[in-house]
Simulated assay, not measured.
Amino acid sequence: MRRFQILVCDGPSCGITHESDRLVTLLKAGVAADPGLKARCHVVAYNCFGRCSDGPNVFVRPLAPNEKGEEEPRDVSGPGFYPGVTEEKAMVILERHVGEETPIAEWVEDY
């Protein structure tokens, strides 16, 4: 099974206006409650995706074999960007994109 990192925007707009810290707390709790996810998923606050009006924004990315999931990456690009994530959407993303390794086509965008 693949390892994943979930980046939750913590920039000024997502962090303050959209209260993205609630998503971080919720996702971390979801990962901690599932032994299968706990072994292969990390939730990290990310500086900013630059899509402030779309927030809160989340990016799910696979981790390379030796990559540390608790560290913020230098560069983020490719598929896996989810704009406008609600608490309900966050849990579906965790279950489907990470748990089942199936991105949610109707929500996900390239970044």
Rank of each mutant, 00 (worst) to 15 (best):
A33I: 08
D21Y: 12
P35E: 13
D21Q: 13
W107T: 07
S13F: 12
G80K: 11
Y82G: 06
T86V: 08
V85C: 04
T102E: 14
D110Q: 15
C41G: 02
R61H: 00
D10K: 06
V8P: 05
H18I: 01
V8K: 01
V31F: 01
I104Y: 14
C48D: 11
W107N: 07
V43E: 00
L7T: 05
F49V: 09
V44P: 01
V92D: 03
F4Q: 00
A90C: 03
I6L: 11
L94R: 07
A105E: 15
P12Q: 14
T102K: 14
E70R: 10
R51W: 05
K28D: 02
D75V: 15
R74P: 00
V98Y: 05
D10E: 14
V8I: 13
G99F: 10
C48A: 12
R40T: 06
L94D: 07
G80N: 09
L63H: 10
E88Y: 04
V60T: 11
N57Q: 03
R2Q: 03
S20R: 01
E71F: 03
C14E: 00
C14I: 02
A105W: 12
R2H: 08
E100K: 13
V43K: 00
F81D: 08
V76T: 10
R22S: 04
L23R: 03
C9V: 11
A32Y: 05
A33D: 14
P65N: 01
F4R: 02
M1L: 09
D54F: 12
F49H: 05
P12C: 14
S20F: 00
F81T: 04
E88T: 11
P79C: 13
V58K: 01
F59R: 00
G99S: 10
A64P: 00
L23Y: 02
V108L: 07
M91I: 13
F4D: 02
E19R: 10
A90Q: 05
S20Y: 05
L26I: 02
E95Y: 02
E19A: 06
I6A: 11
M91Q: 15
G99N: 08
P83H: 08
P35A: 11
V108E: 15
R74D: 12
A33K: 08
G55L: 08
G55R: 11
G30W: 01
P79A: 14
E109I: 15
L37M: 04
H97A: 13
I6M: 12
V43M: 01
S13L: 09
N57S: 14
A45E: 04
